[in-house]
Simulated assay, not measured.
Amino acid sequence: MKRILCILSLLLIITACDDGNLTVDPIDFSAGAILKCSIKDVLYKVQGSEMMFIEIPSSYFANDETVEGAPLEVHLSSTIKVTYRRYASDTSELNICPTAPDATPNLVEQWQATEGIIQITATAIKTTNLAENSTRITGYIYNITFKNITFIKPDGPQTQETVQFGNYTTTVNPLAFGFNHEVDKSTCTTKVFDFSGGEVFTLDVADYDALFAPEPTTTPRTRLISADNKLSYRLYSNTITDAYFCAAITPTTPTLTQQWDAIDGIEATSGIIEVSTVHIGGDYIHTIRLKKVTLKRGNSEFSLGDDYLFGTLITH
């Protein structure tokens, strides 16, 4: 009898403890693309009558890759929010995006996240020119995952270790590279420039006089891109000229919007500057080619290809 009473008591204790457990309602918004409201910094997904959205500044999607294995981590706060909603019938962006969102269909249930981390992994989208073996960046994919996120539901809090929100895709205009390949030496430095509107391609070598010597070549002169031999692409908000770089104080306009610097070269492998010189009349024509050069900004990079014509420089 005592044994039976002990078993019954134990069952009562277990039952009493179990009554306090909350039901976990799994959230799965992994299918489909994440969309962005056009007039506010809100990313959202709609699945029939369900919606999940993030209020997050667009600065967290800065058109750059994240380091592999090291996603960007953004903690929820009073300004960065994750919300789940269920409506009485199918919902749409009209219930979240307009300044005055639609009141129909009726909102049935809302969960507000109070704790958690938004993990963002960014990867560049690239197009490849197979003939040149070159690449250009046309956009970025941001994979978004919620880690250790706690929602306050009508029946209490719910914490999930991982919730996949999915992919948010942006597009960028590929760099124009609208150069005519007729380059000039700067009037104030030994840099060699090619200008095209707001674009400028700059080659800055330590031994300019040797690389562009007034002597015909039988084999090209070569240099590796390095701290002494730098190649840089810059994009400005307006037309750029040599005067900008020669000014004693850097002008406030036009403004620099992008800068991509070449990665250091490897002997006989990549990052090679090649100059061939011919003598025509009283001029020396130096043809500058770039072999297997990669340009990088932040964590993003793209290739100019196996053989890119930087341009021709004429000296006397």
Rank of each mutant, 00 (worst) to 15 (best):
A262G: 04
I152C: 08
R221L: 10
T253W: 05
T312I: 02
L211E: 02
S186F: 04
T315M: 11
F177D: 01
S196P: 00
T159N: 07
T190M: 10
A262L: 10
S196W: 02
T104G: 08
D18A: 13
F146P: 01
D207R: 14
N229W: 02
E274T: 13
A124M: 01
T123M: 12
P71G: 05
D261R: 14
P254K: 13
T145W: 06
D209S: 15
L224F: 01
Q164A: 15
T315H: 07
G48Y: 01
R3F: 15
D209G: 12
N143K: 15
K230G: 05
I266P: 02
Y233T: 06
D306T: 15
L35G: 12
A103R: 00
L11Q: 07
D102F: 13
Q160S: 13
F29R: 05
G271N: 04
V24K: 13
S303P: 00
T159Q: 05
T277P: 04
V192A: 04
I149P: 03
V108R: 13
L211I: 09
T150S: 10
I273V: 07
Y236D: 00
T315Q: 08
L203E: 00
V172W: 03
S237F: 07
V183N: 01
D228G: 15
M52F: 08
G69Q: 01
T138C: 06
S276Q: 12
D264T: 14
I225G: 10
T219L: 13
S89D: 09
V172P: 03
A131S: 11
T202L: 10
A113T: 03
F29A: 11
V183S: 08
L256F: 09
F151V: 03
P157H: 06
K292A: 14
P98K: 09
P254A: 06
E301T: 12
K185C: 03
H279D: 05
S89I: 02
F29H: 07
G166H: 05
T189M: 11
S300W: 02
V67K: 12
Q110T: 09
V192M: 03
R289Q: 10
G69S: 04
T294E: 03
I7V: 15
F165T: 09
R221F: 02
A16R: 00
K147I: 07
C6Q: 12
T217C: 09
S303I: 01
A70L: 14
F310T: 02
V74D: 01
I263T: 11
G166Y: 05
L12S: 15
T253G: 06
V183I: 12
I273T: 03
C97A: 10
Q164E: 09
Q259C: 08
A103T: 06
F151M: 05
A103E: 04
I288V: 15
V46L: 09
I56E: 00
L94G: 04
R297S: 15
T239F: 13
K296Q: 14
F245H: 06
F193I: 08
P216S: 11
T127E: 07
C246G: 02
T170V: 09
P57L: 10
C17Y: 09
I314A: 10
M52P: 02
T123L: 12
G178H: 04
